[in-house]
Design a protein around this nucleic acid. Sequence first.
RNA 1: GCGCCUGUAGCUCAACAGGAUAGAGCAACAGCCUUCUAAGCUGUAGGUUGCAGGUUCGAGCCCUGCCAGGCGCGCCA
Length: 579
Amino acid sequence: MGAGLRASEVTLKQALEQALQAALAELLKDHPDAVAPEVQLTRPKMKEHGDYAASVAMPLARLLKKSPQQIAASILEVVQWPDAVVGADIAGPGFINIRLRQASEAEALKTIMLAGESYGKQVVLADAEKVNLEFVSANPTGPMHVGHGRGAVVGDALASVLKAVGKKVHREYYINDAGVQIGVLANSVWLRMQELKGETVVFPEAAYPGEYIVRIAREVLEKHDYQQLLAMEEDERSGLIGGEAIAANMAMIRDDLNAIGIHFDHYFSEQSLHASGRVSALIDKLAADGVVYNGTLPPPKGQEVEDYTPVEQQLFRTTDFGDDVDRPLAKQDGTPTYFAADIAYHYDKYLRGFDRMIDVWGADHGGYVSRVQAAMKALTGREAQPDVLLVQMVNLTRDGKPVKMSKRAGTFVTLREVVDEVGADAVRFNFMTRRVESQLDFDLEAAKQKNDENPVYYVQYAYARIGAILRKAEDEGHAIGELDDVDVSVLTEHEEQRLVAHLLAYPEALQKAADRLEAYRVATFAMRLAADFHSFYHKHRVVTDDVVLTRARMLLIKAVGQIIRNALTVLGVSTPERM
RNA sequence: GCGCCUGUAGCUCAACAGGAUAGAGCAACAGCCUUCUAAGCUGUAGGUUGCAGGUUCGAGCCCUGCCAGGCGCGCCA
């Protein structure tokens, strides 16, 4: 702040905060050891408490050995307010309530319109922080389910939020195309192929049962000669079919992601890590660093493991870096564990020059966080990296009754089914209205209905309604015209000032969402703004005989529409002009 | 047993880094369309913020201990 900004870029709120900060410095000059608390103005909930409120006097009470009211009074004696302030008084336990000249903030509507879709956003500078945001990363063994969808939507919106505040964001999908699951996948397809060829086959419990497996089997049969496959060594055949199945599943996953408007910068293959030797190289590096040893882990606590046999393994001393127990890098058969590949993957991100990593995982991977962070600390020295967002479960219901889902049993509802039925906007917005820490109830029947159960329509309706009003106004010959000529001082109604205040809070809301990795804040912001607009709409008319007022209100609602659009765009939700 | 997450109105969730009288939607009840989109608005009712302590000017938020639910806890991913 400060030096580089032109005067016009300092918001009124910032000017007020600076005035108070200066007053505090003046007040505290006799206390060289005292640190002045940072002034952060808030919007009081009740209008009797003014337009802005500051609580700075309270925390100083102890230090100055005076009552907060006395301190607030001292602040008010020395503070030099900007012109827009018409009064300030002390209330409650020591709040300073600031009252502004009516409509004094409305000039900012012009700033909003000039900035347009970039209002609230920051420019991405050349030296901006480079963020790698990994999300979805659903196994390529079948379609994505609804839980994946939540992670997908949250990750994608967070990426947009971070980009909006000036980060360089890289969206990445980690394909777990290695490991025993791929063998199971290949075998499942192979069994279906044999079945399609008229063989009688027995499907083991471990095989994937879904209909998509049959489809893949059919495709593989079209591309490859059955007799040749039959003649192959099992490993070779499994590798070939597995490759085909992964490709088919990833094509399906990409298509499904596309259906909710999610696009990745990079799909990163786990197999490529193994093939290029990066996993074994990483293990060598760890060994050279002296954090690997051969040892035996204690049996797991709290769950019955009947056939537990202690086995000596190659272990990573993650306990030196904050983990609970040391973690195996190699399985009994000598192949690397998933963990080994995963830290090779995260280390690869580091080597690619990312300043920060953020992973969006399902809550069932919660126990995995400490070991990956420990590994990254050992490898890079960075603390608490990656940042991990654990997205809690989606409880899927149909007419209020839980839908039991199992990939094994083939009874899961795919994300695609839900998107096709409900629509991408409704899915995205619904998944964004809650904090990731909360479990999410999602009812298929309720979500299918286009009624007020879907908050997305509430916000979109406000936008469409604004469009209708502006069209009507223009039909009747009104126009906003030159911004400089619009007299916004007539916007003195309570609902109008509320809307202005709300719009001005958008950049901060966006910044806070980014700082706290909480994209849902943008959704709740949009809902509250829409609510304020609907209230305004029912109390006041935009198109009136008063030309000056009509112009000002047109500008007001156009700015509201702009911010609703900006917010929904960040969330990946559309803004239809008519509904 | 241990770790992480959660517990707020009948239901689903908010509460802006500890601030003033805890707010919305749904469900219930009562109103509002000859006037810019009723997918909307206004009002009524609904609360010991799981329980018990603690920290301080002030706690839904921080600390401790319980209670309840979810997720996880060797060589699956």
